[in-house]
């Protein structure tokens, strides 16, 4: 309930400047989802007689060094990149919520130990840590996903822990304690719903970074493996032809740029509007006002 109300609030109050990036991003996402319908060719069909061709009616963006349709590969690559990013961010948020609220709510030694572990992980640049983890486990998208989840969830844990510590001191949480509410219920009913708005903004900003990381690791040959189309991997495969056929790396490069830029713009605008520093109570008040009419009507019916 709270999440929906909140998203409604965020979406309902935006101006054109926010709507445009959201619409553009939605187009890219939909293009990825409907890739099987939109793609003119099989993205993995190798036809060496057509290799490195320029744009033509049959291949709108031309073909790569193995004669595969570039546009089709880009469309299918959207599926891979976005769903991987979403998977990683979802996992990170879940881990962050559990460990972050545990640390923030319990406080004391538990908090200290968890935070020191986080500090230790944060001390190492995240991509380098991810690369070393993949070096241990071997390349592949699953290993990459796990490595990125481990590295990224630390940020979420820290962020959520900070929010929980703050919310824990709110009068309504103290009141709930006096009313005999159990710690678990307190976290799930009172604390987490009130930190979601801020978390939503952070997630929007972070998805862009995760997409960059996925592309970077795939470019290095550590993530998504050939022949699966993925933007970073496509740039990696095309880099040999950077002088003769630059479009092989420009096309996926532009897509990555667009998606990351769009996500950042959306995140920034939401952050600006909501006041990034813990806007929860204000946001909640507004959202309630929006929903207010409805509630009143419900009230009158019963």
């Amino acid at each position: 309930m709270g999440v929906i109300r909140n998203i409604q609030w965020i979406v309902g109050r935006q101006r054109v400047t926010t709507v445009i990036p959201v619409v553009l991003l939605l187009i890219i996402v939909l293009a990825g989802i409907f890739a099987p319908l939109l793609a003119p060719n099989d993205p993995n069909f190798v036809d060496l007689s057509h290799k490195l061709q320029g744009p033509s009616p049959q291949f709108p963006l031309g073909t790569d060094q193995l004669g595969r349709c570039l546009l089709s590969r880009l469309l299918y690559g959207t599926q891979v990149s976005l769903s991987l990013a979403l998977l990683i961010v979802t996992a990170c948020v879940s881990i962050g919520l559990v460990i972050g609220s545990l640390a923030g709510y319990t406080g004391g030694k538990v908090d200290g130990i968890i935070m020191r572990i986080c500090d230790a992980i944060l001390a190492i640049p995240s991509l380098i840590l991810a690369i070393s983890l993949i070096a241990i486990w071997g390349a592949g998208w699953k290993q990459m996903a796990i490595a990125l989840i481990i590295v990224q969830s630390v940020y979420y844990t820290r962020f959520i822990r900070g929010m929980v510590v703050n919310l824990k001191q709110q009068t309504y949480v103290v009141a709930a304690r006096i009313m005999g509410t159990s710690p678990v219920r307190m976290v799930t009913r009172h604390i987490i719903p009130n930190l979601l708005p801020s978390l939503f903004i952070v997630v929007t900003l972070e998805i862009g970074w995760v997409i960059m990381d996925i592309s970077a690791l795939s470019f290095l040959g550590l993530g998504v493996q050939a022949p699966t189309p993925e933007w970073g991997a496509m740039i990696n495969e095309g880099k040999t032809f950077i002088r003769s056929h630059p479009r092989l790396i420009i096309a996926p490069g532009v897509i990555i740029l667009c998606v990351v830029a769009l996500l950042n713009i959306i995140g920034e605008t939401l952050g600006d509007k909501n006041g990034k520093a813990i806007p929860m109570r204000k946001a909640a008040k507004h959202s309630n006002k929006l929903k207010g009419g409805q509630h009143e009507r419900e009230g009158n019916h019963s």
Binding site: M1, G2, R5, Q170, T171, Y172, A175, A176, I178, M179, G180, R189, H190, P193, N194, M280, R281, A284, K285, N288, H295
Partner: peptide, 24 residues
């Protein structure tokens, strides 16, 4: 303590901050 809490309740000064803004 849990049983005692039942018989020991509180009303705070600031009525708005004493309730979760997301609850009916």
């Amino acid at each position: 303590r849990k049983e005692l809490r039942r018989d020991l309740q509180v009303v705070f000064q600031d009525s708005y901050s004493a309730v979760n803004p997301r609850m009916t």
